[in-house]
Amino acid sequence: MIEWSDEGAILATRPFGETSVIVELFSATHGRHAGVVRGGTSRKIAPTLQPGAQVSATWKARLDSHLGSFTIEPVRSRAAAAMADRLALAGLNAVCAILSHVLPEREAHAPLYDRTIALLDLLGQAEVWPLAYLRWEQALLDEMGFGMDLSQCAVHGVNEELIYVSPKSGRAVSRTAAGEWADRLLPLPPVLAGQGDASNAEIVTALGTTGYFIEHRLIKSLGDRPMPVARGRLIDAISRSA
């Protein structure tokens, strides 16, 4: 028998048989890991098995290759914060959907896990959450090997008037270097380069650029998959709160 215990956040659930549920858990040590929760549809357990919930989990299986089963205890619910407003709910759903979509199964990503928990703990703080989410998407791209290099112009090597990002290389491009190719480049608003606070409208522009690399680089590297629709709902919620 193989067994381990860890703390993590629930990313997704789906029915398994008449009374059980398959849970996807994201933890620092075991990454995205699935297991069956017996009786997971019961009134006692079901409220705990919500996306975003922080739980303590023990996983057991006869062989490592098996699906295995979880025993789960609640640590912290984020349901109240998520249901408090449209932005928080959209944010929680987007984070969980993207991670469920792109994380390799059973591969640890401890730095991304820490960033994710910190982000989820900010749910309900509408004044800081959009910027924190943008930084999280940048961290996601970095962690998965598709990060952008915004330190200097890819063409001229300068670090002045960097206003574009190359969709091919992910590197910054200056105004003068862009020339006639400007309409084929992605926008590089100051906030994307880490230059302080920004309006939600500027953050939405920056999320258009990070979203390009998530959809056309990260997700496409995993096969023919679409961008999770939950992310589009989040962008819409941030736009409405601008």
Rank of each mutant, 00 (worst) to 15 (best):
Y133N: 05
I117L: 15
G39E: 08
T210P: 09
G8W: 10
V204E: 06
E160D: 13
P187H: 08
G196M: 00
P15F: 11
H216M: 07
D6Y: 10
D64Q: 14
M83Y: 14
T205S: 12
A88Y: 01
V21C: 10
L122F: 10
F26S: 02
A28Y: 08
S199Q: 04
E107N: 13
N200V: 03
V21Y: 08
R184M: 09
G40E: 04
F146P: 03
V36Q: 03
L192I: 03
G211Q: 11
I72A: 05
G223N: 04
G68S: 07
L185E: 05
R171Y: 02
R32G: 13
R233Q: 14
S5M: 13
R171V: 01
E180A: 11
G223P: 00
V23I: 13
K220L: 09
G8D: 11
P51C: 04
H33L: 12
G8N: 13
P74M: 06
S69Q: 11
T29I: 14
L222W: 02
A206W: 03
V55L: 02
P15Q: 14
G179H: 02
E180P: 01
D197F: 10
A126W: 03
I2V: 14
L162T: 01
A90T: 06
G8F: 12
E105C: 11
D149M: 06
G194N: 04
L119I: 08
L25R: 06
P130R: 04
A34K: 09
T48G: 06
R175L: 08
L123W: 07
W136G: 04
C96D: 04
S239E: 11
A34L: 14
L87A: 00
L234Q: 02
L140P: 07
G91K: 02
A12I: 10
R175D: 09
S77Q: 10
G157D: 07
S199G: 12
D236F: 08
G40D: 03
S5C: 11
L150F: 02
V165T: 02
S241H: 10
H33I: 15
S27A: 13
D236E: 15
L150D: 00
E7A: 15
F70G: 03
R175G: 04
N200I: 00
G232C: 03
G179K: 01
A61G: 09
W4A: 11
E127N: 13
Y212V: 08
T210I: 11
R171T: 06
L134G: 03
G211T: 09
D142C: 07
G179T: 03
A108W: 10
E24C: 10
M148P: 01
F213P: 09
L112A: 05
A154C: 05
L162K: 00
R38Y: 14
V55Y: 01
K60D: 00
F70Y: 14
E202Q: 06
V191T: 04
M144R: 07
L162H: 02
L134Q: 01
A201I: 03
N93W: 12
A178D: 03
G39H: 03
N200Y: 06
S5W: 08
M1Y: 00
T71N: 12
Q50F: 05
V75C: 10
R171P: 01
A108V: 11
E143V: 03
E7W: 10
G194R: 01
A139T: 10
E202T: 09
T13Y: 13
L122Q: 13
R78I: 11
A79V: 14
Q54K: 14
